[in-house]
Simulated scan of single mutants.
Amino acid sequence: MTPKKPKSENSIVDIAKALGISPATVSRALNNNLRISEATRARVKEMAKEMGYRHNSMASSLRNRRSNIIGLIVPRISMYFHVFFITSLQRQLQAAGYNLMICQSNDSVSVEKELANTLYSARVDALVVSLTLYTENIAHFDGFLRQGIPLVFYDRVPTRRTEAYVIKGDDYRGGLLAGNHLIQAGCQRIAYISGPLSCSIYQERTRGFVDSLAKHHIPLRQEWIYYHELTAENAWDSLRKLFEGDIIPDGLFAANDTTAIAAVAFARERGIAIPDELKIVGYSNDPRAAIITPAITSIEQYPNDMADKVAETLINALQHRHTPSPNTIGEPLICPVDLVRRMTT
């Protein structure tokens, strides 16, 4: 059986013939040009709807050198922080006339490179990126900088200076708050489960935590520190090792709430009383941390506030190039964090 040939789509010329007007008038009417009367614009749009006309936004963007599309690359869309960040950012950008094209790297550097090239070729007006756990060389974003396309790194940002905008949480203070709180709660034997140190957020959280212990003269046991991807499975592996000896921790700083939740489940299985025998601080203030029993003390990152800063920076860079920016290229804009105390401490 011979497949049917796809029916050709109606064009501006077809609409013009149907209405007995020029294609130029149709084009202006579809683009809401005020030189065309409101009545004519209404007639053109009604006919376009009847004929199933689809506006070619790609061709229009090539002519105008603007796509009104912002690219976004996130490590994993399922992560609590990014869920709230994306929702808030998309709402603000749409209100300003931009659409958000969301891509997921799955924490793969090679996928991140492919996505950067794809979004560059798609002529996005700007790009927002939270890097993978393992991205150290950011050369695959250089094309955006060379062409003057606004580039914003947020949350997981480059560990070296860049000419892009950088907006990040105060992860050093987050690590400091976690360590100080566990010590003030009476902990003397504190373990730490971190993400890979190739990632900026875990470098900073680790530095803050280590400085806190040093300030209070609490010994840091290297055998009680683990660096790996912060999945529930990895957390259980590390927790089994932490609690297999005669001397066990009385405090745990988990660098994300997935690990802290795993620690609560582990303690329940082993009959370890929380917070009497083990105190736990997580990170991100994932909603699950508040509803689990016992509810988990965590570091609040305020993803909506970070989205506000990213949106403000983008809109300023795209629409108000000659006014002062709330963010300076190359100088990180630091978003505050706070400790939310609950029943695990």
Rank of each mutant, 00 (worst) to 15 (best):
T2A: 12
K4T: 07
K7S: 13
S11V: 05
A16C: 07
L19S: 04
P23H: 13
A29W: 01
A29T: 07
L34R: 13
R35W: 00
K45M: 15
M47N: 02
K49C: 01
Y53P: 01
M58A: 14
S60H: 08
N68R: 06
I70F: 01
G71V: 09
G71S: 10
G71W: 04
G71F: 09
L72T: 10
V74C: 02
H82R: 01
I86H: 08
S88A: 15
L93M: 14
Q94I: 00
A95Q: 15
C103H: 07
Q104T: 15
L115F: 06
L119F: 06
A122H: 13
D125R: 07
L127I: 13
L131S: 12
T132C: 08
L133R: 09
A139F: 09
H140A: 10
H140R: 05
R156M: 04
E163Y: 04
K168G: 00
Y172S: 06
G174N: 07
A178W: 06
A178H: 11
L182C: 10
I190Y: 08
Y192E: 06
S200A: 13
R205A: 14
R207M: 11
F209Y: 14
D211A: 15
H217T: 13
P219D: 13
R221I: 10
R221F: 08
W224V: 08
I225A: 04
D250L: 05
F253P: 06
T258R: 12
A260C: 12
I261R: 10
F266N: 09
E269R: 13
R270C: 11
I274T: 08
K279Y: 09
P287G: 01
R288T: 12
T293Q: 12
S298E: 06
P303Y: 11
D308F: 11
E312N: 08
N316D: 05
H322L: 07
T323F: 00
P324Q: 13
S325R: 07
G330A: 02
C335R: 01
P336D: 14
V340A: 10
R342W: 06
M343Q: 15
